[in-house]
Amino acid sequence: MQEFLQLVLSGIATGGIYASLALALVLIYNAMGLVNFAQGEMAMLATFVGYALITRGMSFWIAFPVTLVLAFGGGIVIQRVVIKPVEKAPVLTLVIITLGLATLVNGLAGFIWGYLPRTFPSPFSSDSVDLGGVFVSYRDVGVIAVTGVVLLCVYLLLQHTTVGLTLRAAAHHPEASRLLGVHVSWMLALGWGLASAVGAVSGMMVAPVLFLEPNMMQTIIIYAFAAAVLGGIESPLGAVVGGLIVGVTINLAGAYLPGVGGDLQLAVGLAIIIVVLILKPNGLFGQAAVRRV
């Protein structure tokens, strides 16, 4: 039982990491009906920027917000330069472009920082705390706290500020928003910036656990896909719940299912994606799409 609880708790911690990346995917999906295949690589690049700041002597807690701001700016630049010229293109074209972006960013990071794995400093101590017989590491608690705060901030921003309202309006009814004086195109850019910053959180949190290298996010993005699909790809709440479920499921499957462990945990992610898409394509929180033909 103790072992079970411990696995669940550490699953929630990794689940929070998947949840932030999944939330980033959902933000962009809501803004333009597109799954951003480059989300993980953008987060990886932001993490490398954070690493560069930290190795220049900055403390983690200053480097963290600075990285998020830089990631926000980077997201806006990417939207303006790469995505805006092809906004109206068919979705297949856009998917291929984001895939190209993922490959390009991966190569650039390899070009600048090389492919040797590096250790990323963790802001939390690796000790454990005894919570009534269940040992929880400070690292897990810290990751849960940080991702929780970030997700709460995003929720408050989207639901309780004017910017959030215009952002949602521009995504749902671009024409009507434009008539009301909303700069729709810039709102999309803002959405990309926000998604990029939220994704960067997952990169900064996962880097101390994995080693930092250009292919670090390749597995994380699959879990984030699974989380977003499970929660319903247009639902921010779904992304968070989906992320937590995926994190816990994968931890438990790795421990209790014979033969699943190491590499094959990734296959559990694939299995979740396929099962959800076939049985309940709208996910847990998504609404069935109604199409007029």
């Binding site: 092809v86 074209t93 291929i96 472009i97 190209g100 190569g107 390899g110």
Partner: peptide, 21 residues
Amino acid sequence: STVKNAGPAVSYGAILILIMM
């Protein structure tokens, strides 16, 4: 040595984006 490793990814990514655009 870095270009040798990163070159294919950079050129593939750039080509995909430019051709599609």
